[in-house]
Structure formats: structure tokens, C-alpha cells
Amino acid sequence: MKRTFLLHLALIGLALLTLTPLLWMVSASFMPAGDANSVPPPLWPRRATLAHYVELFTRLNLARNFANSLLVAVSATFISLITNSLAGYAFAKLRFRGRDRIFALLLGALVIPAQVGMLPLFLLLKSMGLVNTMVGAIVPGMASIFGIFMIRQYALSIPNDLLDAARVDGAGEFRIFSSIVVPVIKPILVTLAAFTFLMMWNDFMWPLIILSDDAKYTLPVALANLSGEHVQDTELMMAGSVLTILPVMIVFVALQRAYIRGIMAGSVKG
């Protein structure tokens, strides 16, 4: 009895510590300007106002940055679903020369930090005229070793008999992929979609490097930029943070199970 009580006390305590920053962010975003900077710091708005959200969308024009982020995250998600699922399936189920060696090379490359390639990638995209474009921001998300790996692990469980039967019936490899493989690997495709969307939406360093003007910034870059100019405007910055976090929270709540499955899948390789 006492043990269960202490256990729940610890669970609730940790939950409060975890949620306080997020709840305070939401609460402060509704406070009238200046109210958050009082002693002692208020936990709830004296009276709630939507003024900061209005300002974000009118004077600060954050809607276009929101649209940029959405564009980058959604297109990278779609493109990477196609490229990674085709490759992941081929590595799992099709025989071709050099398959195992290429796959080993890809896995080995997982330890290389992304920053190592960032400077030359910037110069490469510059020579292609893709600096400060949405395409440039999407490039690193269009295919990923981790995504290929995730799909491959899942596709390994597809029975060969199923594929061979279709071949005997005269179905081509593309037909087999679209009508047999895709329905079977659908769960992992949802997982990969959730992962890619969240990763692209939350990414900061690459869009910071490749995008160079206000109108092109993704939301996190625009927000970081804004926070430099509006250090004193606590409530406004909190509204901006809520706006940035809200879409990923919605995606997470909707796809929570798929996302958590992905983390477990990723840990299998250890």
C-alpha cells in the first residue's frame, strides 16, 4: 500500500516536472504583454488575450513560415516514403549483385555525423542554384539510410512464396511491389512518415544554413530569428513557440503508436 502510494507520488512528481515548461508556455502565450515579467512570476493569465497570436499572423507574417515548414515536411515525407520503401524492399527481398556489400556500406555510414557533409553540401547546392530555395531545404530528407534500414527490417518478414507465386502468375516486379508489398508494409510506412515529418519540421541547423531570407525561413528558423529581436516580449515568444510545437504535437498524438514502434525498431540494431 505504502509502496504503491510512493510509486505514484514519484510518477506524478516527474509528470509535473515534465509538463510544467509546456503548460507555462501555453499559459504565458495568453498573458497580456509584460505580465509574465512580474515578481513572483504568474502561473495563470490575469485575463486571457489572443493578441500575441494575432500579431504573429499579421505584423510578423509567420503564416508564410508556417506554410514553408509544412511544405518542407510534407514533401520530404512523401519523397522519402517512395525512395526508402523501394530501396528497403529491394535490399530485403530482391537479389542483385553487390547487394550485401552496399547495404553494409550504408550501415557503416550511419556513424558519420550529418555535420561532416554539411559544408560541401552547401557548396554543391550553391553550384546547382539551390541555396535559399525550398528544394535545397528538402534535399537532406529525400532519402535516408535509417529509413531504408527500417523498411528492410520489416520487409524481411514478407514470405518469399507470396512473391514467387505472383511471379509465376506473370506479375512484373513493379506490379508485385505496388499491389502486394505496399499493403503488407503499410504499418512501417506510417511509422516512417511520422518520423520524417517530425524530423523535418523540427530540424534547425540545415534550414538555418541553406535559407537566407525571412520569407523563405522555416518556422523554427523564423522563431529563432524573432527571439533575437524580441527578447523582452516573453508572451509573444511563447505564442510563437506554441504555434511551432502544435503541429508536431497533433501528428504525434495521431500517430503515437506508430512512432513509438519506430523507436523500438531502431533500437533493435544494437
Binding site: 516527474l14 509546456l22 504565458a28 511563447m238 513557440s241 511551432t244 501528428v251
Partner: peptide, 22 residues
């Protein structure tokens, strides 16, 4: 409890870094 503890993971780093600054 698992979902609550997991919530910060999916948040945008830049946004929560700004929150923590305050």
C-alpha cells in the same frame, strides 16, 4: 505517464529552448 514523459521529445528544440530561456 509514458505519453507525458515522451511529450518533450516530439517538441521542436528551438521552441523549447526559447521557453527554457525564460
Amino acid at each position: 505517464f509514458r505519453s507525458i514523459y515522451f511529450a518533450p521529445v516530439v517538441t521542436t528544440l528551438v521552441a523549447v529552448a526559447i521557453v527554457w530561456r525564460y
